[in-house]
């Protein structure tokens, strides 16, 4: 579904991604871990099409289409969803109105008619339950004054509403309390199916106990330096990243 080949990208003249290779197939759950500043959010931003990042080398293919050629909104309509590490606040725009607009834009792109108000409300009720999202947050301005955890839940609620093919969750677990972590993880698990793929960016093995990944990648200094299964996450939890960095330096000095 998604193929990333030798992806290099920079921001403000600074090289951030230095040759990422990654293949994600339908139905797979990939976890990306790595120290602060290693480029995890940058990778997510480049995939979503944030324009302050410049791709200097490499390719990204999504369902046979060149993702890098598309405007951010096109990528979204094609089915790429990014749950932001820091969701922005948009005063004056109600959550409900925003979601209806987004959903109908995506539907229009797929040649589907706009949802009728009643169907739309039914859908929101259903998806709200999935992540236990308080209905009083629906009529408030988008993320304005939301607590950290409420913002994260809102991201997953939107994910459930928009039903993308590829969801990238950037540290959705940070800021969630213990119960919320369980609820949101269960929500994500319910959304999993054979057609959808996920990339979860996280610092904590804890999340991966709820959401069991098929692969765990370690991103360091703009590159994926190790790929394993869920056991790798456990090992990282115990040993940190230093042993990996050393391994890497040994390899590079040979």
């Amino acid at each position: 579904m998604l193929t990333i080949k030798n992806l290099h990208a920079e921001v403000e003249g600074k090289k951030i991604l230095k040759g990422i290779n990654l293949e994600i197939n339908k139905g797979e759950m990939h976890a990306i871990m790595g120290p602060n500043g290693s480029g995890k959010s940058s990778l997510a931003s480049v995939l979503a099409g944030r324009d302050n990042y410049t791709v200097t080398e490499g390719e990204v293919w999504f369902n046979g289409k060149n993702l890098l050629d598309m405007a951010p909104e096109e990528r979204a309509r094609e089915g790429v969803f990014l749950a932001f590490q820091y969701p922005v606040e948009i005063p004056g725009v109600s959550n409900l109105n925003f979601l209806k607009t987004a959903l109908n834009e995506i539907r229009a792109y797929k040649g589907l008619p706009a949802l009728e108000a009643r169907e739309f409300l039914k859908l929101t009720k259903e998806k709200q339950q999935l992540v236990d999202f308080h209905s009083n947050l629906m009529n408030r301005s988008l993320n304005e004054g939301f607590s950290g955890g409420e913002k994260k839940r809102n991201e997953i609620f939107q994910l459930a509403m928009l039903d993308p093919q590829l969801a990238i969750l950037d540290e959705t677990d940070s800021g969630l309390d213990i119960d919320a972590l369980r609820i949101v993880s269960n929500g994500v698990n319910k959304l999993r199916d054979a057609e959808k793929s996920f990339v979860v960016i996280t610092h904590y093995q804890r999340l991966l106990e709820y959401i069991i990944p098929d692969f765990v990648h370690v991103l360091y200094n703009g590159r994926i330096i190790k790929t394993g299964t869920k056991e790798l996450a456990l090992e990282l939890e115990e040993r940190g990243y230093d042993w990996l960095k050393e391994e890497l330096h040994l390899k590079e000095s040979v």
Binding site: R77, V88, Y109
Partner: peptide
């Protein structure tokens, strides 16, 4: 720009995004 990008990422183009924000305002 981050607000516009957020809305873009949900499938809303920049012009609609501005209209959405302005209409709310």
């Amino acid at each position: 720009e981050d607000q516009i990008f957020y809305l873009n990422q949900r499938g809303i183009d920049s012009e609609k995004a501005v209209a959405l924000i302005v209409n709310g305002y």
